[in-house]
Nucleic acid binder design. Structure first.
Lengths: 237, 237
DNA sequence: TGCAGTTACTTGTTATAACAAATCACAGAT
DNA sequence: ATCTGTGATTTGTTATAACAAGTAACTGCA
């Protein structure tokens, strides 16, 4: 889990528009966020076990809040429990990843369509900045940075749709892919004619929801296909 | 929360096809199921507080497993936490219910379309039985029974789509409506030309996915509109 | 050397207690 | 009668310990 004092590293997260988290920050939340970002940053490998007491010791907490964090991630399907009850990072098999991509296309597509109807220029500008950041990161071969910004692009756009439940579902889908997401650019950066992100942004400007939806679907289906190589053929025994 | 020894009341739940729950049944799971079905059966009113110690006493358990159950329901958005941290049954405002209906139309629509492609005759027959049960219950004015069977119809159909993540999302949407679901038939039973459920079943037989999707959408959008009357105009202070 | 049996330890689970903060209630003063 | 301050109670939160079950390791015998 690496270094502990990383608190405010997660500064500019999405979710600004109406998806406020209470900022009470209990120990339980701290543990949750720490494990969660470790997952999203691919610092935990599929199949890896997260045992209660060793993990608590590493986080410097007692068992209770860590257990709560683990159970919360299990209920979000970001972790699983083995037969013994130990939390383990799920292995994505091909069928599961396919389902995730299909649902992402459906849900983020709807999100984009909706965003095209309600987004204001300020939000769109912010989105353009994020995409520019991705381009810069890729040009400089800072792939980890690009992966993080790509996530931000998608979640920020999703938040712009102003459908909180939908937003939650989408984050859940991203969380499931976390452990393999770092491989997004492993076999090269795809060359797009106009990048789907650009097509999305243009569609937002034109308030063209169907174009936004289509571009989003393309980004997810075609852009994510490389990940299929990093997946177990079938769920292991 | 009513009587405790109701264990196997939930016999014939859906989820037969590949959605197996480990049957370990810890105390935590017991508490979870008990609160959850209380929600789904509208035995808990919107705004009602579920305090840790009183609830634990009522369930005859210590605080720990009950707290775990409450937090799990919170993470599924079936409950919320007030500023103090107390679990409370959410009040659905109009916007939220609209979003739930929209997402149900989208997701259950996809589910139905997929089911039309892969369902086998045995499953379809079981679905027909459930719908027949609804008709019988309505004819006999056993509305509570009809509500439960209606839920079963939808979830069983969703399971037939064989998309586990989608299934989980849909159950989550149902859970959010639980507290007001019992009002489904409060202002009369809708008279359908052919009941959408019948149109769905016919579409399954014909393997016509788009017809199945359309019928499902109709069932959700038109059939659930009555519930809008049982919702708070806006989220209260 | 190899195997069986037993001990010790590690696992998740649950109960209990200590803690802090917020709320409630009641007493006393104005 | 109303307001205020203080103490007791109730709230969620966290830590700790007791428990059960499974696993590993080691010892003693063949």
């Amino acid at each position: 889990m690496s270094s502990r004092p990383q608190a405010a590293e997660e500064a500019g997260e999405p979710g600004g528009a109406g998806f406020s988290r209470i900022t009470k920050e209990s120990l339980s939340d701290r543990a949750y966020l720490e494990i969660r970002t470790a997952l999203m940053r691919s610092r935990l490998r599929p199949g890896q076990k997260l045992q209660l007491r060793p993990l608590s010791a590493e986080l410097g907490l007692s068992a209770t809040p860590v257990r709560e964090a683990l159970l919360r991630l299990v209920s979000e399907q970001a972790l699983e429990l083995d037969e013994r009850g130990t939390a383990v990072v799920p292995r994505l098999d091909r069928a599961r990843l396919q389902e995730v991509r299909e649902l992402r296309a459906e849900l983020e597509g709807k999100s984009a369509a909706r965003a095209a109807e309600v987004a204001d220029p300020v939000e769109i500008a912010r989105l353009e900045e994020v995409h520019a950041g991705i381009a810069t990161a890729l040009a400089g071969e800072r792939f980890q940075r690009a992966v993080e910004l790509n996530e931000r692009f998608h979640l920020e756009l999703c938040a712009m749709g102003r459908l909180p439940i939908l937003y939650q579902f989408v984050t859940s889908l991203w969380l499931r892919c976390g452990p393999i997401l770092s491989h997004l650019y492993d076999d090269g950066v795809m060359e797009w004619d106009p990048h789907p992100h650009v097509r999305i942004i243009e569609a937002l400007h034109r308030r063209d929801s169907e174009a936004a939806r289509a571009a989003m679907r393309q980004d997810i289906i075609e852009g994510g296909s490389g990940l299929l190589r990093y997946v177990d053929e079938a769920a292991p025994p």
